[in-house]
Design a protein around this nucleic acid. Structure first.
Length: 266
DNA sequence: CAATCGTCCTGCGGGC
DNA sequence: TGCCCGCAGGACGATT
């Protein structure tokens, strides 16, 4: 569930906490989640931490990179000093130790996510497979990107990372609600003015969520705690829309999809 | 070629 | 009370 706003929140906090700090040791506890080669990497510093879609890209000062995917339940916790107790030991995947005895832990409940060691070339290759950033594209780019597959279902298309990067199940549904478009509509059944509206509403909902540190539903927390945007969701996992209409839940492309039949008529 | 399905993984909640 | 089943879902590979 960490989507663009949640990942952006984590990236901003990681930058604050660990940029330019010297890592003296990395322990890997879950080789399925974290590349074990990280254990041979220290000492190094985090030079820069950026986001691309739902992925975190960390560049290190030794020409290596980390590609980090949180997927459903990946978490980072920053602990200023090595705790005597076993804080954040649950589902522990890796621990980064800094010179000042502070630590950064990576925890993953469902173990879907990954921290991979990569070269510049591998990062470039990985990033080039992703579609454009929704907050950095114009509405005409957005429309032409969607219209490449006219018969595709709009909600499913919004989730495809090679079309537009960073949208997941929550924000696809929220944007469609605000744009008053039915999630089951095919792209060629949606007018250009409606797609323009969708682009605007998508950007708006993403920006608002970033302002509120993302949405915390089920498991997501950022480094400093929970997001607050779940309090502003219109349809996702709701019984009633903001206008008190009954929300319906269907499966689209095998994923739960919430929508309001009364508000989303287009 | 696009769309759908199965898979990974764990925790939780509903039902009996 | 306790157990089992199904659901949650991002991304990828396999299949239709």
């Amino acid at each position: 569930m960490p989507e663009l706003p949640e990942v952006e929140t984590v990236v901003r906090q990681l930058r604050q906490k660990v940029l330019e700090k010297k890592v003296v040791n990395v322990e890997v506890f879950d080789p399925k989640v974290v590349d074990t080669r990280l254990q041979q990497l220290a000492p190094f510093k985090f030079k820069n931490i950026t986001r691309r879609g739902k992925s975190i890209i960390a560049s290190l000062d030794n020409d290596n990179y980390l590609i980090i995917q949180l997927r459903m339940t990946g978490h980072f916790y920053y602990v200023p000093k090595l705790p005597s107790s076993d804080t954040h030991n649950e589902h522990l995947a890796a621990v980064f130790h800094f010179t000042d005895k502070s630590i950064l832990t990576h925890n993953s409940i469902r173990r879907f996510g990954k921290i991979q060691l990569a070269t510049k070339k591998e990062v470039d290759e990985y990033v080039s497979k992703l579609g454009p950033e929704p907050l950095e594209m114009t509405s005409s780019e957005f429309i032409s990107s969607l219209q490449k597959t006219p018969s595709a279902v709009i909600k499913s298309k919004l989730l495809e990372q090679d079309c537009i990067a960073g949208i997941g199940n929550i924000y696809a549904q929220e944007a469609l609600y605000h744009a008053k478009i039915l999630p089951s509509k095919k792209i060629n059944q949606i007018s250009e003015s409606q797609l323009t509206k969708l682009h605007k509403e998508l950007q708006s909902v993403l920006l608002k969520s970033i302002e509120h540190n993302g949405s915390t539903v089920s498991n997501y927390t950022h480094i400093a705690g929970k997001g607050e945007f779940q309090n502003f969701l219109a349809v996702y996992q709701k019984d009633k829309c903001p206008k008190s209409h009954k929300i319906r839940k269907v499966q689209i492309g095998g994923r739960s999809t919430y929508y309001c039949k009364d508000c989303q008529k287009s």
